[in-house]
Design a protein around this nucleic acid. Structure first.
Lengths: 247, 247
DNA sequence: CGCGTGATTGAAAAGCATCAACCCAAGTGG
DNA sequence: CCACTTGGGTTGATGCTTTTCAATCACGCG
């Protein structure tokens, strides 16, 4: 549960007392094999899932069978918090690597958010950042050419990982095949491959053996038109004052 | 304020008591001319805006100056609820028709959601639906061909308007130029125009003089691969029980 | 060694953007 | 009252971007 703790703490300034309550909420832990769905579109489950370890992603299929990826889920991310309120999955969540998943009952979330407005706001906040990211993806897919699209995606993931505490500066592990990348940026796998080659030969990014390497981060960011503001990684001071209860 | 009342009531089963509190929150009303920004990217305002009448839209520009539209805002929609929590606009909101806007202080929202968990959840819920819609737009732009994209957008807007209470079955007013439509579905205005012609000649939809006409709604929905589930227009019974406090 | 998944490359076709006119209706000002 | 302007909408021609189809390659694994 430490992963969630850290996330909420940096994002919303959640206090230890609240965290204790949250930690007690998880009833059990499940392990999911790679390539399986944690939860599928149309389900109406009585539980909510939280990624503890592994790599998962949100997606949906068109009637023609084309897939669109909406988000990558890392440890500390809720899979389907909306289910607790909306009650129906409008998309699926699949795993890429083996995942350990914490299971929390829906009723727990509901009473938790009702009795602890600070937790409710922290979770809401996670949600808002997800929304902002979704908007940026829409801009990315709708209005940027292929190679810039990929560059932008790499910049974003790098920024998110770096914010959590990066091991190797300038590179990170991205354990997904090019086809998933294609379904993320709305292109064909072939074209992803070609665009990657262009980026590689331009010396901007390398994506080999599931490792992304960025020789010059500012250069790639400038190339991609990347501005990390939408990730809201560093909350402004005046908000923190509210969130923490100004201690 | 009735527009918001109706929205929250159908979406979250908000009770009259809560509504009274919410109504008292608005401090003043402002009028914005068409073509202006209600609020712009990068601002960090101390107020939150609610559309009372008129037609507005969420958007952002790339560095190259291309625009991507994220959502259309109708009466009853919050412009920037996230600002109250995130503190910084990561996109802009512009008007198309003249808009009347209710101004609510950020502090009001914060204390309101802290003291009234039911309101907090109702607002959160609005947010979740927005997120679901955003995902669907991503799927639409990322994975559907041009004419299907437009068809899907028309289906969605029709469904949303119909859910609120439609005057004319099979048609609705969409007071935007084709160029905005283009920035919504991620295509050029010229190609939007041509695709509209295809749809018109196929007898699926007509978009003339800011009026969208759908001769056969189910047919268009099937053509576009439209499934309204993601709009969460009719909440399942079991959720309502929670939301209303099970009266 | 054979097999399967994912990466890579080539060639052809389709989709879409861009550029550049032109049309049309609704103002606006002389 | 009309010439003029202006913001959309519509259309054609051209070329780039991206997809599709197909084949080949690389590598880890039973």
């Amino acid at each position: 549960m430490e992963v969630l703790a850290r996330k909420l703490q940096t994002l919303a300034g959640i206090r230890d007392v609240d965290l204790a309550v949250l930690s007690a909420a998880s009833s059990d832990v499940r392990t999911i094999e790679p390539g399986e769905d944690i939860i599928s579109e149309g389900e109406n489950p009585e539980t909510v899932f939280l990624v503890l370890s592994g790599f998962a992603f949100r997606y949906k299929l068109t009637e023609e069978g084309d897939r669109q990826v909406f988000a990558y889920l890392l440890p500390g991310d809720f899979c389907d918090l909306h289910v607790a309120l909306l009650g129906r999955m409008d998309h699926s969540i699949g795993t890429i690597s083996p995942c350990r998943i914490a299971v929390i009952s829906r009723q727990t979330i509901i009473t938790l958010t009702e009795e602890h407005p600070r937790i409710a706001r922290a979770l809401w906040l996670c949600n808002l950042v997800d929304g902002a990211t979704l908007r940026e993806w829409l801009l990315n897919i709708g209005r940027r050419p292929a190679h810039q699209r990929l560059a932008h995606l790499f910049c974003e993931i790098y920024a998110r990982i770096a914010a959590v505490g990066l091991t190797t500066p300038g590179s990170f592990s991205l354990p997904i095949p090019q086809a998933v990348l294609a379904d993320t940026v709305g292109m064909s796998d072939v074209h992803v491959n070609r665009s990657l080659r262009v980026l590689r030969e331009a010396g901007l990014v390398t994506f080999r053996k599931q490792i992304v390497s960025i020789p010059n981060v500012p250069e790639l960011e400038s190339y991609a038109g990347f501005d990390p503001a939408y990730l809201h990684l560093r909350p402004p001071e005046d908000r923190l004052a509210f969130e923490t209860g100004a201690d």
